[in-house]
Amino acid sequence: MAGDQKDIDLRTAINAISDVVQNRPRPLRLFDQIYMKAGDMVLQSELVARWADGKKLAFIGDGDAISVCVAYLHAREILEYGPSEIVVFDFDERICGAVSRFADKERLTGLRAELYNCLDAFPGPLDFDCFYTNPPWGASNDGESVKVFAQRGMEATSYRGEGMVVIADDVDLEWPKRVLANVQQFIIGAGFFVQRMMPQLHRYHLDDAPNLRSCNLIVKALPDNEAPGPSTAISDAARLAHFYGRDNPPKVRYIRERKRLDYGKAHDDEYSLELLE
């Protein structure tokens, strides 16, 4: 990890995040795509860039576009540090397309995206130094959905790297505490330990729980840890029964993008023109 947090030009950083937000596809709530608020994205991106400085970083899902923020802030020298390479694995082709288009437009050579559903075996490569995931938070499945994403992250590092898992963290509600406990047990069972927990950091555009926050759970593999076996598809019905909420198992392999020419602009089916007389 790069040293302590350095001073950054906040106005420039926020404007850079604004470029990324403008580029994101609109969220699909059905798949728990819930976007982090912009101020928290600035601080989270700085933290991730520092944590993964000089390393190869896998994002297991990334609707928020923290991956793009990190790469962009580094490339524009708003941050002096950042990962050497970033790969985003997401089952939403709109998100992969948005990452690829932004990387191409801004010449972010160390950033790419790959269409991947985390229920399938992880395609590799398996030599990532670290992973980042902000998965469906598992309110209705005691964290089972978080475990699936964290498992793919650990696989991406061959169970030898570090990870940052972003999950719900609330003082009053019971379910986030159960999820946090279950996820920590799962991670420890896989030969990792919790290196750091940063409580109640981020807020979201979440209208049914506007005050619910998330934490960063930073984990690291024990020395000489080994992968339990090759990556395989996850099809255990009990594990998936409540993946996207109670009685909502995954049914969709990929969200496909309807191709268009006006990304990031008003769609021509949103308006019509009434001409001057």
Partner: peptide, 18 residues
């Protein structure tokens, strides 16, 4: 009863835009 605010008190939950 369910969702991200499961367990929240109804009186505190029904506020603002909810």
């Amino acid at each position: 009863a369910l969702g991200n605010s499961m367990g929240s008190n109804g009186d505190r939950y029904i506020a603002g835009r909810v």
